[in-house]
Simulated assay, not measured.
Amino acid sequence: MNRTWRAVTVDDAEAIADLLEAAEAVEPTNEHYSAEDIRDELTVPNVRLADGSVSVWDGPRLVGYAMAVPREAANPEHRMRVELAVHPEYRDVELGKQLLEWQERTAQALHAKTFPNARLELHARVYESQQWYASVLQAAGFAMARSFATMRAELEKLPPRPELPPSLRLVGYEPAYEDPTREAVNDAFSGHWGMTPYSPELWRHRMIDGPAFRPRTSFLLLTEDGEVGSFVLSAFYQAEMEVTGVREVLIAYVGTRSALRGHGVATALLAHTLVAARDQGYERAALEVDESNAHNALDIYRRCGFEVTQRVHAWVRPMP
């Protein structure tokens, strides 16, 4: 069987989107990506296509790909993100094994170039519906380490909205708040599992310059000295709506600086954002939360009208 193996390029975005949609038809994750979404992911600053990706082609057809993406920091271990997808018609054991072997070799080589003195772990993201992927990872020595809940709220059925704290000033997101918002996100998520601080470059690409970011549906609460104390940052994926027919806003980031926690600040700002999203024509909201979150985030989101609709798991393999 003659298959061509080569590095992924940005020009492969449409082929990757088609492959993921074919996989979605067999093992639904409720995630849908356009070629533009994929291009945005492939151009993230820490993604290294030349030496950190591979694609497998059967003639003109993309049948599988894999990536290994170094983190910006080791904290203290280097938790390298890996991903792998194979077209459902080509899911034989051998191809999955070959891609994982490539992934292992590549991850170790990239690790040696980035954080050679840290311990290396490979981290894969797997939806509960992705049984084939989970079985391939388990056979390669990965184990499920963490679970994250996707929660959704119908915006026509929101509970009563709590008042915003009078000591903080509400503003809509504007470019002038880019760095203060990044600093607040880094502070709010410091110590969270898998979190490393965002650099200005990565933050700008991952959020602010991303095609899905919706500043009109993103809000901040400022302290008296102008610091961002709490934030809700939103995104919208057109490809998702084209498939589902539902206009869904994604709450990409919601949080409060550590010094302001325990006063219902994030709950009030999230509730305000949901009402604004409803008024802007969104029908539903979604977010993702670590089910082991130490700040009772699941209960906070339930008070805002969210319920768990599916789960995604972190599968981890410590490397020798």
Rank of each mutant, 00 (worst) to 15 (best):
W5Y: 13
H123T: 07
V69I: 15
L19S: 07
P159V: 01
P116V: 08
D92F: 05
L42S: 10
A235E: 15
V54L: 13
Q108M: 13
A15Q: 13
E283P: 00
L100A: 03
A297D: 00
L137G: 09
G191K: 01
L158I: 03
E291K: 14
V26G: 01
R6V: 02
A285W: 03
R91M: 05
E31V: 09
T106S: 12
A68M: 04
L19K: 09
R257A: 08
E27C: 06
D37W: 04
E248I: 05
R79Q: 15
N296I: 00
P180E: 03
D290E: 07
H87F: 07
L260A: 06
E36N: 08
I208W: 02
P215R: 01
A286S: 12
R161D: 00
E227I: 09
A124H: 09
P180H: 07
F219S: 06
P160H: 01
Y173S: 02
G305K: 06
L298R: 14
V228E: 06
E89W: 00
I16S: 05
A143Q: 14
V8H: 09
G64D: 02
A314L: 14
P28V: 06
W315T: 05
S53W: 05
A285P: 00
V63F: 01
T181E: 06
V185N: 03
K157F: 08
P200G: 08
P215K: 03
T114F: 00
G305F: 01
Q310L: 10
R3V: 14
A259H: 12
W132L: 10
E83N: 14
E27K: 11
G52R: 03
H123F: 11
E183H: 13
W57A: 11
A85M: 13
I251D: 11
L164R: 07
N117K: 10
E36Q: 13
V232W: 05
W193G: 02
G262A: 10
S292F: 06
I16V: 15
G210P: 02
M80L: 13
L137S: 04
V8I: 15
H78E: 15
A118K: 02
Y173P: 04
G281K: 09
V243Y: 07
L158A: 05
S167M: 04
V10D: 06
N117H: 12
E288F: 06
S53A: 10
I38P: 02
G59F: 06
N117D: 15
S167K: 06
V136W: 03
A314M: 13
P200I: 05
P318L: 06
W132D: 07
D290K: 09
S55N: 04
E227F: 01
D299R: 15
S55P: 03
L233E: 14
V10N: 07
Y177V: 01
T273A: 14
E101C: 09
T29Q: 12
G194A: 07
D209V: 03
G59W: 10
Q310R: 15
P45F: 11
V47Q: 06
G245V: 08
V308H: 03
Q280I: 00
F189N: 07
S135G: 14
R71T: 15
S230P: 05
A271K: 02
F236W: 12
G245D: 14
Y133T: 15
A118I: 00
Y282N: 09
E41P: 00
A118M: 01
A149H: 10
P175M: 10
I300C: 05
V185R: 08
